[in-house]
């Protein structure tokens, strides 16, 4: 069974999609990523799609799902390196990729994730002992 490798980089998870995904592979990636967000307490997911030549409604849904699922696990998702032809096609198809942040390349994507997490940390001013749950 093929697998898309997921790399852990400090607070982030990094995925580089190098092949055109078939459905099963995309669904596996979705669940693997979400499990790893939890496992490593990641605050950001960066997906490099510069080698992806086609995003259809299924693949778009997977990206949207990853972003929404990560979000409720307190992680932001950034998609980087989208090819211009893919962006044109996505919008004409009617798929705006809601909830997914995007950046031009990996470097800018990393910077975007850092700034988002930095903002969140600054927002937290309530003492932590409030959150004791059981």
């Amino acid at each position: 069974m093929d697998k898309i490798p997921i790399l852990k980089m400090s607070d982030f998870l990094l995925v580089t999609i190098q092949v055109d995904l078939y459905d099963q592979l995309a669904e596996n990636l979705e669940s693997d990523l979400i499990n790893m967000v939890k496992k490593y307490n990641s605050h950001g997911v960066l997906i490099d799609i510069s080698a992806v030549s086609i995003i259809d409604s299924f693949m778009g849904r997977i990206l949207g799902n990853i972003a929404m699922m990560s979000k409720i696990l307190d992680a932001e998702t950034v998609v980087v390196g989208m090819q211009p032809a893919v962006a044109i096609t996505l919008i004409e198809l009617g798929l705006p990729l809601k909830g997914v942040h995007s950046a031009l390349n990996v470097e800018k994507g990393m910077a975007l994730l850092r700034s988002k997490i930095h903002n969140i940390e600054q927002d937290i001013s309530i003492p932590a002992d409030d959150s004791s749950t059981e």
């Binding site: 030549s53 086609i54 995003i55 259809d56 409604s57 032809a85 044109i88 096609t89 004409e92 198809l93």
Partner: peptide, 10 residues
Amino acid sequence: QTKLITAASE
């Protein structure tokens, strides 16, 4: 090309 292949995929 991208539009055609995406349409085909759908």
